[in-house]
């Protein structure tokens, strides 16, 4: 095949004729874009490219990259100040309501008194002890829910008949307020850790299973096709294509599962009082019985803070990492 032995380099020829205007409408105004895509060659070889490089700028500096991002400290501050401002405004509104005299201060204390109480309880170690008891339950319950939810999700994803049969049941489970399970859980397990854990699992597992199902449904068929063509079949297809492709949706399901677990746990700790374990729920309940409004509000803040912390530090960070790696984050998100 002598016609394949070429004297010149077709690449150079192609872009020599392509760059100066060309005869295609689409070519105008795209010089910068095209330069990025041109193969690297020395400017001695290609004076036209050198001229364009001088006119448009070096494309290697135009392409996006980690080096272009603002400093870590600045990024942290730019995401922190709106949140801090919002918290400050909420505190101001709270103080204004108290100052208006709508309720006496022994029923609705101001933020100063409550934050002071939070601080003394924290120093006394009460909050640490209660948070440890509650978080232990949360972690155990969530771990069981994770295993149950993932197993259920995988089985339903694999077996179409089961999915048709159990799909709507699962949605029903998810929408059912978990507090409604407690009377039954108490009948079955008495006032025990098991009753609380059962409801936490029932609250979180359906969300995790549904997250897994919808995220595997949304895996682009093209990626599956590409994987198959390159030899990924059976288990390898799941391991290398479907699971990583489904990960963002799955993490969203995990996060929602956590929110449900945390709610169920708080409801459980209020309803199922176990005397020897002074959990956050128990402390809330005692504060109410003792008409200790300051303590009550301080413990409510603990519940909120813990929920936000876990959501942000664990699931938020996980989600951000995945999304950033795939370019799914909006600018300045």
């Amino acid at each position: 095949m002598p016609q394949r032995e070429l004297a010149g380099d077709p690449l150079a020829r192609a872009h020599l004729h392509a760059v100066p205007g060309g005869d295609d409408g689409g070519a105008t105004g795209r010089e910068g874009h095209v330069l990025i895509d041109m193969p690297e060659r020395t400017e001695a070889e290609d004076p036209l490219r050198a001229g364009l490089r001088a006119a448009v700028g070096d494309p290697s500096h135009d392409s996006p990259g980690p080096g272009d991002r603002p400093g870590r400290g600045r990024a942290l501050w730019s995401s922190a100040w709106p949140k801090l401002t919002a918290v400050a405004m909420a505190l101001v509104v709270w103080e204004l309501v108290v100052l208006s005299g709508w309720r006496p201060e022994y029923v609705l204390p101001g933020p100063g008194a409550v934050l002071g109480r939070l601080w003394t309880d924290l120093l006394a170690g009460d909050i640490g002890v209660a948070a440890a008891i509650t978080m232990k339950r949360a972690v155990i319950g969530y771990a069981i829910a994770l295993v149950a939810g993932v197993s259920l999700g995988l089985v339903l994803a694999r077996v179409k008949v089961l999915r048709t049969a159990a799909g709507s049941l699962l949605t029903g489970l998810q929408t059912m307020p978990s507090v409604a399970w407690f009377p039954l859980a108490i009948l079955l397990f008495q006032l025990s850790e098991a009753a609380i854990l059962a409801v936490v699992v029932l609250g979180a597992a359906p969300s995790i299973a549904i997250g897994l199902l919808t995220s595997t449904d949304q895996v682009p068929p093209l990626l599956v096709r590409a994987g198959k063509v390159m030899g990924a079949r059976g288990f390898a297809l799941y391991r290398h294509i479907i699971i990583p492709a489904a990960l963002p949706g799955f993490v969203a399901g995990l996060k929602q599962g956590w929110a449900f677990a945390w709610r169920s746990l708080m409801a459980g700790e209020l309803l199922v009082i176990i005397g020897h374990a002074p959990s956050i729920g128990v402390r809330l309940q005692f504060s109410r019985e003792l008409s200790d409004a300051e303590g009550l509000l301080a413990w409510m803040l603990v519940v909120m803070l813990l929920g936000v912390l876990v959501d942000g530090l664990v699931f938020g960070a996980l989600e951000r990492k995945i999304r950033e790696g795939r370019g799914l984050t909006a600018e300045h998100a």
Binding site: L11, H15, H17, A18, D24, G25, G26, A27, V34, M38
Partner: peptide, 12 residues
């Protein structure tokens, strides 16, 4: 792809 990029990739 746009026409110019297509020309280029044809050669490549």
């Amino acid at each position: 792809l746009d026409a110019m990029m297509r020309d280029h990739l044809h050669s490549e």
